Simulated assay, not measured.
Amino acid sequence: MSLIFFLHCKEKNTDYYHIISVNDTKLSEPKAGEWRETRKEKFQTYESFQKTKKIIPSNNQNTIYLLPIGDFDSLESKEIKQNSIYLEKYFQLKIKILKPISDNLIPKKARRIIDNHEQLLAGYILDHLLLTNKPKDAVVLMAITQKDLYPKPEWNYVFGLASYQKGIGVTSMYRFHDGNLNDSNFNKSLLRLNKISSHEIGHMFGLNHCLNAVCVMNGTNSLPETDKHYARLCSLCQKKLNSSLKYDNQKRLSELNQYFKNNNFLFEAKLTQKDLEILK
Rank of each mutant, 00 (worst) to 15 (best):
E88S: 15
Y90T: 08
F91Q: 00
F91I: 04
K94T: 13
K94M: 03
K96N: 11
I97K: 06
K99F: 01
K99N: 13
S102C: 01
N104T: 13
N104K: 13
L105N: 13
I106C: 02
K109N: 14
R111F: 03
R112N: 07
R112K: 14
I113E: 09
I114V: 11
D115N: 14
D115Y: 12
D115M: 10
N116Y: 13
E118V: 12
L121H: 15
A122Q: 00
Y124S: 02
I125H: 01
L126Y: 05
L126E: 04
H128Y: 13
H128W: 06
L131Y: 12
L131F: 11
T132L: 11
K136L: 13
V139H: 01
V139A: 15
M142Q: 14
A143I: 07
A143P: 07
A143G: 10
Q146T: 10
L149M: 09
L149C: 08
P151R: 08
K152V: 11
E154D: 15
Y157P: 03
F159E: 08
L161W: 07
A162N: 08
A162E: 05
S163T: 12
Y164W: 05
G167P: 04
I168V: 15
I168N: 03
G169P: 01
V170K: 02
T171L: 11
M173E: 04
M173Y: 04
M173W: 03
R175L: 03
